[in-house]
Simulated scan of single mutants.
Amino acid sequence: MHHATPARRTLPALLATTLLAGGLLLGQTAAAPAAEAAPHRTCNVQQLKNQARDERDRAAQLKRLGAREEARRAAARATALERRADQCARADEVVAPPLWK
């Protein structure tokens, strides 16, 4: 039984990786002009804020009912949603144009 040398195993793998990366780059450049038409929005900030407010209301209700652990989890989800909304709002404000423009 003849064993393949390391070069016979690595060269086809390297070639396949190179072709795959080249195909991905070509696919991204073909899709780039279509993406330029619409203004860039990372997410719906108002929707995230509404969800956070709903979670805060739910946490308050759970706390009144005595379900402390569930209220803590709902408050944590609300905090995470608010943080995400703030991050999205900042990302929309501070978006830098690509270097090639």
Score class of each variant (00 low, 15 high):
residue 76 A to D: 12
residue 43 C to I: 03
residue 79 T to G: 14
residue 63 K to V: 00
residue 82 E to Y: 15
residue 78 A to E: 04
residue 81 L to A: 13
residue 84 R to C: 03
residue 53 R to A: 08
residue 59 A to E: 06
residue 69 E to A: 10
residue 71 A to S: 14
residue 60 A to S: 14
residue 73 R to N: 05
residue 41 R to G: 02
residue 54 D to L: 13
residue 45 V to A: 09
residue 78 A to G: 12
residue 76 A to W: 11
residue 84 R to M: 07
residue 73 R to L: 10
residue 76 A to E: 15
residue 84 R to P: 02
residue 60 A to E: 06
residue 56 R to P: 00
residue 43 C to W: 09
residue 54 D to H: 09
residue 54 D to K: 04
residue 70 E to I: 01
residue 67 A to R: 06
residue 48 L to K: 04
residue 82 E to G: 01
residue 61 Q to M: 12
residue 65 L to M: 10
residue 78 A to Q: 03
residue 55 E to K: 09
residue 62 L to R: 02
residue 46 Q to D: 11
residue 55 E to P: 01
residue 44 N to R: 12
residue 53 R to S: 14
residue 81 L to P: 02
residue 51 Q to S: 15
residue 42 T to K: 03
residue 77 R to G: 02
residue 83 R to D: 08
residue 71 A to E: 05
residue 45 V to W: 01
residue 80 A to I: 04
residue 58 R to M: 14
residue 63 K to W: 05
residue 66 G to H: 06
residue 76 A to P: 03
residue 54 D to S: 10
residue 69 E to I: 07
residue 48 L to H: 12
residue 53 R to H: 15
residue 41 R to K: 11
residue 57 D to F: 13
residue 76 A to S: 13
residue 57 D to V: 13
residue 55 E to T: 11
residue 70 E to C: 11
residue 59 A to F: 02
residue 48 L to V: 03
residue 43 C to T: 03
residue 47 Q to C: 04
residue 51 Q to E: 14
residue 79 T to Y: 14
residue 70 E to V: 01
residue 84 R to V: 00
residue 74 A to M: 06
residue 76 A to R: 15
residue 79 T to C: 08
residue 55 E to W: 08
residue 75 A to H: 07
residue 74 A to Q: 13
residue 54 D to F: 07
residue 69 E to V: 09
residue 78 A to N: 04
residue 80 A to V: 09
residue 49 K to T: 10
residue 60 A to P: 00
residue 70 E to A: 13
residue 49 K to I: 11
residue 76 A to Q: 11
residue 44 N to I: 07
residue 85 A to K: 04
residue 66 G to V: 05
residue 51 Q to A: 08
residue 41 R to Y: 07
residue 52 A to L: 15
residue 69 E to S: 14
residue 83 R to A: 15
residue 44 N to F: 05
residue 71 A to C: 04
residue 57 D to Q: 11
residue 51 Q to M: 07
residue 42 T to P: 00
residue 78 A to P: 01
residue 67 A to I: 00
residue 64 R to P: 00
residue 81 L to R: 06
residue 41 R to L: 08
residue 67 A to V: 04
residue 73 R to F: 04
